[in-house]
């Protein structure tokens, strides 16, 4: 099988399976577990960008993704501090 078609179907598989894992995975009452599951559809979107040769979109998405992790972790820790 061609590598481009294989990457495209792998990206679709990661997107669908990761979304199902975010919704009804094990122990998703904990917000940090749910946030770590959200990383999988992100990588699926990266693989779909890669299969369609959108290089600039892929580069921007990877650079922004490591910034959004900081914001979400900060928000989860602040919520846990306020509930205590």
């Amino acid at each position: 099988m061609d590598i481009v078609v294989s990457t495209l179907y792998l990206g679709y598989f990661l997107l669908i399976f990761g979304t199902l894992g975010v919704i009804l995975g094990p122990e998703t009452r904990d917000p940090l577990v749910r946030f770590l599951n959200v990383e999988i559809p992100t990588i699926g979107v990266m693989l779909i960008f890669l299969a369609y040769n959108h290089t600039l979109a892929l580069m921007t998405y990877i650079a922004i993704n490591s910034l959004i992790v900081l914001v979400f972790i900060r928000a989860i820790i602040r919520k846990e501090e306020l509930e205590a």
Binding site: S6, L10, F13, L14, F17, G18, P26, N37
Partner: peptide, 21 residues
């Protein structure tokens, strides 16, 4: 491709934080 498929299943099925990371 092997690493991506195995990692996708492993991230969802593990429940401890360090295993997921």
């Amino acid at each position: 491709i092997f690493c991506i498929v195995m990692g996708c299943i492993g991230v969802i099925l593990n429940t401890d934080y360090l295993d997921k990371i």
